[in-house]
């Protein structure tokens, strides 16, 4: 409010606030993907509800189908309404945050890398045990997120320390058994 007024453009009468930079062309309509997803989920829910085997012992007038039918139809309606909104130029507001810089285009490579690291962790936790695979998860994620200066020194040490400490805390304090794996078998 104390910011100096920007010089008004030629037709100042209806000067809208400067719009945030928007991608053009196909990417501008990428939000239609959300509509497609809602539509697909809606169809899935409806098909599941309709093909449900009817149980003889339904108690009360409302069976297990009713709510899925309502949710499924509502999903289809919302998908259409959202598509109309997007085609009319409505855009969902991307969420901000302390560490979020929306002026740059999304870095989807990092996201893919993180998802890969996470899936690798899911695949390795049973054969390798938690301490080792957990350390790999932390180390790999930090690397994907741009930690480069200590890749082979500080990062693996922090990862190993965190992973082993978590294993011990969960095991002793909470009684939740995380798999130790061959490494813990040796220790």
């Amino acid at each position: 409010m104390s910011t100096p007024e920007t010089p008004p453009p030629a037709d100042a009468s209806a000067a809208p606030p400067p719009p945030a930079e928007r991608p053009t062309g196909l990417r501008a309509y990428s939000e239609l993907g959300v509509c497609a997803l809602l539509l697909a989920v809606g169809v899935l829910v409806l098909v599941d509800a309709v093909t449900m085997e009817t149980v003889a012992s339904v108690r009360g007038p409302v069976g297990p189908r009713t709510v899925p039918l309502i949710v499924g139809i509502a999903l289809l309606v919302v998908a259409v309404l959202l598509a109309v909104d997007v085609l009319r130029g409505g855009r969902g507001e991307a969420e901000g945050g302390e560490d979020v810089d929306l002026s740059e285009p999304g870095d989807w490579r990092t996201v893919a890398l993180l998802a890969g690291v996470f899936l690798a962790f899911a695949a390795l936790i049973d054969p390798l045990g938690f301490p080792l695979s957990g350390a790999l998860l932390f180390w790999g994620s930090a690397y994907a997120l741009g930690s480069r200066t200590h890749t082979l020194t500080r990062d693996p040490l922090i990862a190993a320390g965190l992973s082993v400490a978590t294993y011990v805390v969960f095991h002793t304090l909470l009684g939740v058994q995380l798999p130790g794996g061959p490494l813990m078998g040796v220790v």
Binding site: V100, L102, G106, D107, G146
Partner: peptide, 8 residues
């Protein structure tokens, strides 16, 4: 993941 995509 969202922050990772837009990390300042």
């Amino acid at each position: 993941l969202w922050v990772a995509a837009h990390l300042r």
